[in-house]
Design a protein around this nucleic acid. Sequence first.
DNA 1: ATCAAGTATAAACTATACTTAATACTTGTT
DNA 2: AACAAGTATTAAGTATAGTTTATACTTGAT
Lengths: 120, 120
Amino acid sequence: MLINELSKRTGVSIPTLRYYENYGLFQGLKDEKVKTNNYKDYDESIVEKMEMIKGAKEAGFTLSEIKKLLDSWYNKRLSVDKKVEIVHDKIKEIDGKIRQLKAVKKILLVCIDDIEQGDC
Amino acid sequence: MLINELSKRTGVSIPTLRYYENYGLFQGLKDEKVKTNNYKDYDESIVEKMEMIKGAKEAGFTLSEIKKLLDSWYNKRLSVDKKVEIVHDKIKEIDGKIRQLKAVKKILLVCIDDIEQGDC
DNA sequence: ATCAAGTATAAACTATACTTAATACTTGTT
DNA sequence: AACAAGTATTAAGTATAGTTTATACTTGAT
């Protein structure tokens, strides 16, 4: 598919997609058979990749972190153990973030009590 | 306490504290009795406020969101119901973020299986 | 009295993650 | 053939969240 369709499929704007591609998060393929243009083709796997990227972004990971994760993921030279380790580390980070969010939530719940008691 | 101590107590750098103060997240008080300087004094409540700010930041809230939350919190003109509503909305946002993080975690767990199966 | 260290303010600079604009070529429709 | 709409690339602009630099005044220790 062309970038326009990728944009529609993922809900991500064309400039943002190009920015991500340029950043190295994914790579469209130029059709070598077509000599008249250099339009790039994005396949289904890139839609999936973008879903991952969107999720990770909303979870608060930076593009740089996401790139590292994707790079290790698709890097054939890394051993299985090494890959698992990298992904495992990210999972630990996520657990940390969840803990942090729960702590803030707790503060806000106490805050509601305070407000209802007129303490602030 | 002076800004140096506030920095040490909170672990936040002096320039960042000044940036936050300027942004309106809190306000140090100039001691009116002292005419020779305009050093500002930060009391214990500001240390607490900073702890809140740090937690909210790590949870992924922007300074603008944190400011709105603090403003409503300390705004005497808002009704108790209105304050509770604002804090409640933030709690809902946090729940949403926790859900999002759990979703990403799930993806990564599946990813580990894929890696172990040699599927990527 | 002096002088390093602390405080304040303003302005410039940086990084991240985009968005907007400018330009140029290609495609599809009429 | 013409022309709007799509694609690519490059460069500049924007917002957020700071950091760094420059300048000037104040304090505290010697």
